Every structure is written in C-alpha cells, then in structure tokens.
Simulated scan of single mutants.
Amino acid sequence: MTELELKYGCNPNQKPARIFMESGELPIKVLNGKPGYINFLDAFNSWQLVKELKEATGLPSAASFKHVSPAGAAVGTELTDVERKIYFAEGMELSPIASAYVRARGADRLCSYGDWAALSDVCDEQTARYLALEVSDGVIAPGYTEKALEILKGKRKGGYNVVEIDPAYVPKHIEHKDVFGVTFEQGRNDFKIDEALLGNIVTENKDLPQQAKRDMLLALITLKYTQSNSVCYVKDGQAIGVGAGQQSRIHCTRLAGNKADNWLLRQHPKTLALQFVPGIRRPDRDNAIDVYLSDEYMDVLADGVWQQTFAVKPEVLTAEEKREWIAKQSGVTVGSDAFFPFGDNVERARKSGVQYIVQPGGSIRDDHVIDTCNKYGIVMAFTGMRLFHH
C-alpha cells in the first residue's frame, strides 16, 4: 500500500488525513508544495475532465476548478484580440495548452480566484508564466518542462502546489467512498462521450454544425465532473457559465446563464474602455469589472469611491444597453446533466444567445420542451445518458 499523509481533511479539525492505494503505486508525484485534501479532490476530478476532453476533441484542454467543480473549461484555440484583453493576456506568447488554460480561467475569473488548474498536455513555459500571474492553489499535468517547473516553484514563496500525474494510469472499475461510517460502492462512470452521442436530434431544426458538436462535447464532459444538479453554457470551445450544485434545474440554468451574460458583457465596448488606476492587481480588476456590471455600481458612483479603482470615471452601462448587447449574441450551446423538466429552462437559455441544447431527455414533458425549442428555432439533441456527479 502506498500513501501520502495530508495536513488535514476538508477542515482543520478533520484528522488524520491521507490519500492511499491498497495495491499499486499512487499515480501522482508531488513536485512542489504540499497539496491538501480538497486540492487532491480538485486535481483528480479536473484531470479526468481535461483528459477526456482532449480525447473527444483532439485539442489541448484545460480546466479551472474550485471546490470540486469547474469554474471553467476550454480547448486550446487561438485567442481573439478581445479575449486577450478581457483575460489580461495582451502581448503574451501563448502555446495551444497555454491558450486552453487562459480560456478556461477566463470563463468566470471571479470564481477562478484561488483555483486548481488542470492541463491535458505537458505544462510549458508560456502556461507557467500565465499561471505565475494568477492567484491559484496548484496545477496538475502529465509533465512539466524544466523552465515551467522553475517558474512554478517560485510562485507563492516557493509553496505553489505542482502535481504530475501518470497519463497512462487507469483506475479500477469499482469505486468506494464512506459516508457516516457506511461504505458506498459503484461502478466508475467511464461512459464515453463522443460525437456518436449527438445523433438523436429531436427538434425541427436539425442543422448542427461541427463547431456546435464540439461545444456540446465540451459541455457534456464538463458536466460529467460538476457537482449536480448542473448546467453549462459553452461558446467557441470554451465554457462561459457553469451552474453547479443547485437543487432545482431552472436555478442551474439561471445561475449559469447569468455567468454567461457576464462573460458576454465583459466584451461590451464600455467594459473594454474601462481605465484602471496604475498598478492595480489582477484580482482587483476582476472585482471592479464584476461590480461595474452589477447593480451595485450605482452605489459605487453615489458613494464616490470609484476613484479607488478607476483612473477615469466609467460611463454607466445601463440595463437597457445590457439587454441589447446580450440580445445580439448567438451561437451559444447549453448542456444539462439531467433532463429539462419544463420549457422554462429553454426560455431562460435562449435569452443568452443559446442556439443549441444537449441533454439526456426522458421527462414526461419532453414534448413541451421540444415545442419551446421549435418556437425559437433551437437545435436540441437527446443523449439518453444522465451525468450526475456527487
């Protein structure tokens, strides 16, 4: 049996704590730092996500995890000038795997604060340099270049968590966990998600372009490793809103949709024109942008505290301007880990530019959900496979 002793479990009072295998070697090496219990939960879940996402798309993949759910996930495609600006990556050299992480982190930069990063490919210098600029707890990858490891070892006063995983490792088919002293056993969810899963298009509109298929795969694989109930909005190979752990499906759809709207609004000309005080930290910029896009900004103006963040008084982005900007958006995909029980989920999703939906189907109200999609010309595929994760 091999094991790694941990400082404590989920909370400081939960001792002793360790990770171990009853037979064989642990599939990881800690190259730097001292990862904790939650760090390893994030690491193992996020690694599975990016490994499967690369297998499904053929593209370098990355994820940004917080509390055992992804704040974002993405494949490594080239960033636009606007994306570079809103992700604070202007002027940086970005390899495909670096681009994947920048985009994963950019899905919800507020929630990615202090994240665990996962990379499908070897971590190179460009990825390490971007990670070094962000507030992050650690990273898992199948390997690290010498320069990347040198950079990461200098992060957080030398305490940054760097974990290398054996990409050939295959876990046992049966998995266990204890709750309240009772052991639960189940078969591991090794269900393969690929394009063959997308063939059952149930709506009148059956035009499903290749890019939308890729986005559906990204949504489904992200959901497979998101605490349920969960809904995921995706655009151009990047998650732009993840709603995790809600008891109601519509609340998942609203939560993820509101995050997607914020991502879209970060690209509004007024948001792009924001001028910050010199030397402002990246997290403070993220917080300021979040406040600017919220109703709280009027209070900031009224209290006269905007000078603490902005070099020039920002012009108000009105509620009407927000609605108009979001209404212009299109090409967004939504995935759900279980069926939509009512058409209200479709109504909410389409307000954020959703044109494609992928979900298991199987509700007694499937006809109503399909009719709602048909009303807006939305393409919807039924997979027949639930993706709960607890």
Rank of each mutant, 00 (worst) to 15 (best):
H173L: 11
A73G: 11
N39Q: 09
Q308F: 11
L94R: 02
Q246A: 12
K375Y: 12
G138V: 02
K328R: 14
R84D: 11
G331Y: 01
Q329A: 14
S294T: 02
I240C: 06
F382D: 08
E175V: 15
F310N: 01
M216V: 10
T77A: 02
A73F: 12
L110R: 10
D367N: 04
E3Y: 10
D337I: 03
V122M: 13
D178L: 10
P142G: 00
V202Y: 09
I165T: 03
V334M: 15
P70V: 03
Y87N: 15
R348F: 09
A56G: 05
L119S: 13
A212P: 01
G114M: 03
H173E: 15
R348V: 15
V346N: 03
D295Q: 13
P96H: 09
A219R: 10
E146D: 15
T372V: 06
R188N: 09
N262W: 00
H390P: 01
D108G: 12
A17W: 01
R188T: 08
Q210V: 09
N11M: 05
G143C: 05
E3G: 01
D81L: 14
A338R: 12
E3M: 03
I174W: 09
K270P: 02
D178C: 07
C373G: 07
Q307K: 06
E324T: 04
Q267I: 07
E83T: 13
D190H: 04
F20H: 08
K172A: 10
Y225C: 05
Y376S: 14
L255K: 07
D137P: 00
P283I: 11
W325E: 13
A219L: 12
D261F: 00
Y37E: 08
F339C: 12
E125K: 13
F40H: 00
E324I: 04
A100R: 01
S23N: 05
A71V: 07
S352D: 04
